[in-house]
Structure formats: C-alpha cells, structure tokens
C-alpha cells in the first residue's frame, strides 16, 4: 500500500479548539501540527477526550457555534480555517469525506438507502436521474452490500450495522474524495464484521489511492490499516511515528503505557501493567507535561514546562524531555529501550 507520496494534502498548523461554556473558555486542543500526505493512511489514537475527533471535526468546520477554532488548515494551498460555510460545503464530501461510529444515526431513517446515496451523487458529482441511480447501484455493489438492487429500496433499519456502515462508506465514496476521515468506523461492530469493514477500506484505498485518517481508541485496528500513527493525550499529539516503529519501540511513556496495558491473546498470561491515575480534566491547566502526574519517568523539567513535539529522528516525533531530541539516532533510542527491557 505504498501509494503515499511526499506531497502534502492536508496540513494542520497550530490548531487550537476552545469550547465556550457560558463565558468561560475551556481549551480542549492545545495547538496541534499534523501533515497528511496524498494517498497515505494515518491513524490517530488516544483515549476518550484526548481531542482526536474534535481535531478533525474542527478541520471540516463541524463543531458548532460554541467552538472557537484557531490556527491554520491548509488543503493544497487553500486555508480552510478562513472559509465560509458555503465554500466549506464544497470541501466536505468532495475533497474530504467523513464517516462516523454509529452508521444508523448518520443515515436518515425515513429515506431509502438508494435515495441517500443518490443525494450525495447529485450534490458532489452533478449526476441526476437514471445516471445517479446507476452510479448508486455501482457504489453499493462496490462496498460489498449483497443483493444491491433490492437494498437500494430498503430503509436503514432493514439493514444490519455492518451493512449500514458499508452504505456510509458508499456515500463517502460518492464524491470521490482525496481524503476519508473515519472516526471509530468499526467500534460499534462485532469483531467478525469489523474485519470485513477494515478489509473493505483497505481494498478501496488500494484501488482509488484515497488518503485515510483513521481515528480510533483501538491500537489493533489502527495498526491494521495505517502506515503512520499519531498518539494524542489531553489535546496534544505526544508521539508520531511509522506504525511498525511505534509498536516495536514506543518512545513516549504514554504510548509505552498504552501498549503495556493492552492484554495479548497469545503471549503467556501475565498481570496487566496499568497506567496509574486518570486523564486530566480539560480546563484545569497544569504547568508542564499533561502526562507527568501519571508518568513513571517524570522529572523536574516535566512538571515545569510543556515538552514540544520535536523530531527524535527524521521519521518520528515525540513530545518528551526524557526521550527526545538529545538521543541522536533510532539505533541509540532502541538500545536504550532494550537495556530497559533487560533490567
């Protein structure tokens, strides 16, 4: 799946989000920088409230009136942050499409499946009548819905959760987007159905070269589909690395903790290593690194200053004083970690 190029498609620069809670502004996103290249797949992982969904809803201007979004979002030279509702609606669906966790609540319950796919085709591709109908049938066939012709005349409640998520994917594909943002697309599905949907997304990417942003709390799901992974904690990206590196050799103590806390089905059964404490409450800003109170390696500096997300090697970034820039190469970082495992 190496359709990724080096050409940036979407570049997020210093993006912040504050929610207005009746006069009081609560910051939930503390300035993130992220680049999605054409055709690449990037996973965003983190626990509830870390800002993984909020950041992409902000990109598409879907957060509503109570949100204050700052920073820049560049889509091939165009700054989305300054666009009005009208111009943004030309981006949504056509350039960047988004699918969500619960397909049943994203679909209109009183409209037939076919009509809802056609609507997207009319809007984004300017098709109409029988051309739209034929294209809708092609799309629903493409996403592996069995018995496509009959399904077009059914309502969402007549389809299973897995089938409805396929329909959502069909609608997202209607605009032939350059980027699909999938927010927990398989979280509500059973594992055997999840496997089907992940395979479908993989196939479609291989076929169309569409870039993918996969937002998930499940490290397993993300590792299955993504080439690059960004880990978020309390409204910041704390680590970003190629998938294979992140899982073999996590740099940030939080990533390390997340992986250690994950039970394994095959390794010898052993007690899980839990991360102590809980995620900080948004709006209660401590000086220093947000993870410091839970971090086994926190030092004086960690409690005083927020560590910047800095390149630790050419291909990865980490926001940690204990791990980052001083360590010159991947090899040194690895040996450091290896000695830690031994002791």
């Amino acid at each position: 799946m190496s359709v990724a190029s080096h050409e940036p498609l979407v570049t997020i620069e210093r993006m912040t989000v504050d929610f207005d809670l009746g006069g009081r502004l609560v910051r939930v996103l503390h300035g993130i920088d992220l680049e999605v290249r054409r055709g690449e797949s990037i996973g965003i992982v983190g626990e509830s409230g870390c800002g993984k969904s909020v950041s992409w809803l902000a990109v598409l201007g879907l957060l509503g009136r109570r949100a204050r979004v700052g920073g820049k979002v560049m889509l091939e030279g165009q700054n989305l942050a300054v666009l009005g509702e009208r111009e943004l609606s030309r981006v949504r669906g056509r350039r960047i499409a988004m699918i969500f966790q619960d397909p049943a609540s994203s679909l209109n319950p009183v409209q037939k499946i076919g009509r809802q796919i056609e609507e997207a085709l009319v809007l984004h591709r300017g098709l109409s009548g029988s051309a739209a109908r034929a294209q809708a049938k092609r799309l629903i066939d493409r996403v592996g819905v069995t018995d496509a012709a009959r399904r077009l005349d059914q309502y969402p409640h007549e389809l299973s959760g897995g089938m409805n998520q396929r329909v959502m994917i069909a609608i997202a594909l209607a605009g032939q987007p350059d980027l699909l943002v999938a927010d927990e697309p398989t979280t509500a599905l059973d594992v055997t159905i999840q496997a089907q949907v992940l395979d479908l997304i993989r196939e479609i990417r291989a076929e169309t070269g569409m870039a993918l942003v996969l937002i998930s709390h499940d490290l397993g799901v993300v590792s299955d589909l993504c080439e690059r992974i960004a880990v978020m904690y309390a409204g910041r990206i704390v680590e970003e690395a190629p998938a294979e590196m992140l899982f073999v050799e996590p740099l940030h103590p939080y990533t390390h903790g997340l992986l250690a806390a994950l039970p394994d089905l095959e390794a010898p059964s052993q007690r899980l290593i839990a991360i102590p404490g809980t995620v900080p409450t948004p709006g209660v800003d401590l000086p220093g690194c947000d993870f410091a109170p839970r971090c086994p390696e926190a030092c004086e500096a960690c409690r005083a200053v927020v560590p910047p997300l800095a390149n630790s090697t050419r291909r990865r970034r980490v926001a940690c004083f204990r791990r980052a820039p001083a360590v010159g190469s991947e090899r040194i970082a690895f040996s450091e970690r290896a000695s830690e495992l031994v002791s």
Binding site: T146, S160, G162, M163, D190, V191, T192, I193, Q194, A195, Q196, L198, D199, D218, L219, G220, V221, V222, S223, D224, A243, E244, F247, L259, L262, D264, L265, E266
Partner: peptide
C-alpha cells in the same frame, strides 16, 4: 474466525479468516 479477527498491534500482517455475511 473470531480469534483471527481480533486486530492486535504486535502482529500486523497475518492470515485473517474473514467470514462472509452477518450472523
């Protein structure tokens, strides 16, 4: 099929048994 469908970070490419259809 159930066991093989579980995505696990430490094992990326593997032979997954993907069942067809819904229960």
């Amino acid at each position: 099929a159930l066991v093989s469908a579980i995505p696990t970070p430490r094992r990326r490419m593997r032979d997954r048994i993907v069942l067809s259809g819904d229960p």
